[in-house]
Design a protein around this nucleic acid. Structure first.
Lengths: 132, 132
DNA sequence: TATACAAGCTCTAGTAACTAGAGGTTCAAG
DNA sequence: CTTGAACCTCTAGTTACTAGAGCTTGTATA
């Protein structure tokens, strides 16, 4: 099976310019070209792009994905290095959730105070003006 | 009270280049200058920068902050437009939390499966290769 | 008052992860 | 053989800053 960039795009739900971008930054290896200089992809490359998109969807950075790809390609590594990358990412996700929950609380307090007040002035601006 | 950019920076915990950047994009009005062309700030401008930093800490985008500032400066607006901006932002924060929680679950499943397996192969890479 | 040096100035470019557009070429169907 | 969708490269824009080069100003101390 050989794919044009458009076919690969449909197959992986990854936009055409994004595929070219991944090639530019060396995340996807350079594609073979047709006689007329158009990119042609193999099933392996399609599989790799699936891997990348799936990882992105899980919030891994392109840098982390580069590491993961390296772990796939290179046999000389501890079995669970990929595990560690994922663990580390999980910690970051959890931190982010905590931060956002605090934010949610602060916003809620701000908005609720204003609702309760009942005056014609909006207290949201006022509370944003207070130094925290 | 008149501040140099460095004093303002300390007062607001906002880095010097960031202050200049805010001026460039029109978020802070252009500062007065000393005879030697250095920026001089008033207490009002200091207050405004506090407002901006507080809003940023709550996750408002610079664009949203521009709106909020406009609401402060312009008398002709409904009392609760700022309220609406905050409400909208709250909804976004909550959506983001939901997304991250789902992510957390998926990562956890991936990592746990690998732990349980007990084999020498890391299943993290395997599961990232599966099309979702 | 001379001097040293911290702090200020402008301008350019880099970060992450793409996206959009211009202007031109190739492929495939009819 | 023609048409038009899909492809090509290259540049620049997005968000919110940050870093660095190369130069100037302000201020504390001798």
């Amino acid at each position: 099976m050989v794919y044009s960039i458009g076919q690969l795009s449909k197959e992986t739900h990854c936009k055409v310019p994004t595929i070219r971008y991944y090639e530019d930054i060396g995340l996807l290896e350079k594609a073979q070209r047709s006689a007329g200089n158009q990119r042609r992809y193999t099933s392996q490359q399609c599989q790799r792009l699936h891997f990348i998109r799936h990882s992105r969807a899980l919030g891994f950075s392109l840098d982390e994905i580069k590491q993961l790809i390296h772990l796939q390609d290179c046999k000389h590594h501890d079995a669970h290095q990929a595990h560690d990358v994922a663990q580390h990412h999980l910690v970051e996700v959890r931190n982010k959730i905590e931060q956002l929950k605090q934010l949610e609380q602060q916003l809620l307090t701000m908005i609720d105070n204003c609702d309760v007040d009942g005056s014609d002035d909006c207290l949201v601006l006022k509370s944003l003006n207070e130094v925290s």
